[in-house]
């Protein structure tokens, strides 16, 4: 006996409304519940499970197991954040990144020497602001159009946004550092972090879409 597409959709909706937001874990939970239900009714003569039987079993099943799924979801979100952080770090220490970072430093240092500190600061501030707005808008549009969220991708976006916001709005090292050499170091590290984060995000997004769609 197999569940219908509508019954599968019902389980998915129930989990989503229970706060299990990430599609990658919901797929797994929906499959677990559906397989369990199909196994329990395996000996039934009908080929499709009637909605009434389905609803009754589902209510009992969730009353018994909901807490387990929510625990699993909580742990999953934590693991996803750690995975996102590790992925960025892994990409930062790649040979390509390690070779490009000193190059970026030289470009910035020369740019400050040639165009002046204030001009470089202004250009970078405009770039950061545009990037920040773009990411926030992308996230909002995704939410409004109900695009499904993948755990590690979402945690990476929120982690990078928090990181940029804290450095860019609260710490403001460019206000504290006056020496152009150290300022170039700060800009280099900050740009390297943002660029690596963005590239990792795009690659990861493509990987998840390919894997799940």
């Amino acid at each position: 006996m197999k569940l219908t597409a509508a019954q599968i959709g019902f389980i998915d909706n129930y989990l989503k409304n229970s706060g299990i937001n990430y599609i990658d874990i919901r797929y797994e939970m929906v499959d677990h519940i559906a397989t369990d239900l199909e196994t329990k009714f395996a000996d039934c003569e009908k080929s499709v499970l009637q909605d009434e039987d389905f609803q009754n079993y589902f209510k009992v099943y969730m009353a018994k197991n909901k807490a387990q799924f929510l625990t699993s979801n909580k742990q999953f979100a934590k693991t996803a954040r750690m995975r996102a952080f590790k992925l960025i770090l892994k990409n930062i220490v790649r040979p390509t990144s390690l070779l490009l970072t000193p190059l970026l430093f030289i470009i910035l240092y020369k740019a400050i020497a040639m165009a002046g500190l204030e001009t470089v600061k202004d250009i970078l501030h405009i770039t950061y602001t545009v990037l920040l707005i773009a990411v926030v808008l992308f996230d909002k549009i995704n939410y409004k159009t109900k695009t499904e969220k993948f755990s590690v991708v979402d945690k990476m976006i929120s982690g990078c946004l928090i990181g940029i916001y804290v450095v860019f709005v609260f710490i403001r090292p460019d206000k504290i550092i006056s020496d152009s050499l150290w300022l170039s170091v700060y800009y280099t590290l900050f740009i390297a972090f943002i660029t690596t984060g963005a590239i990792t995000l795009l690659l990861l997004s493509a990987k998840y879409k390919k894997q799940y769609e």
Binding site: L3, I8, Y27, E28, V30, D31, E38, Q211
Partner: peptide, 22 residues
């Protein structure tokens, strides 16, 4: 998920009976 995050497990997703299976 922990084993997957540690790189010890790999995931394959396939469509089985109206749903995705990991």
């Amino acid at each position: 998920h922990k084993l997957e995050a540690e790189g010890l497990l790999d995931v394959e997703v396939a469509k089985v009976d109206n749903r995705m299976r990991k």
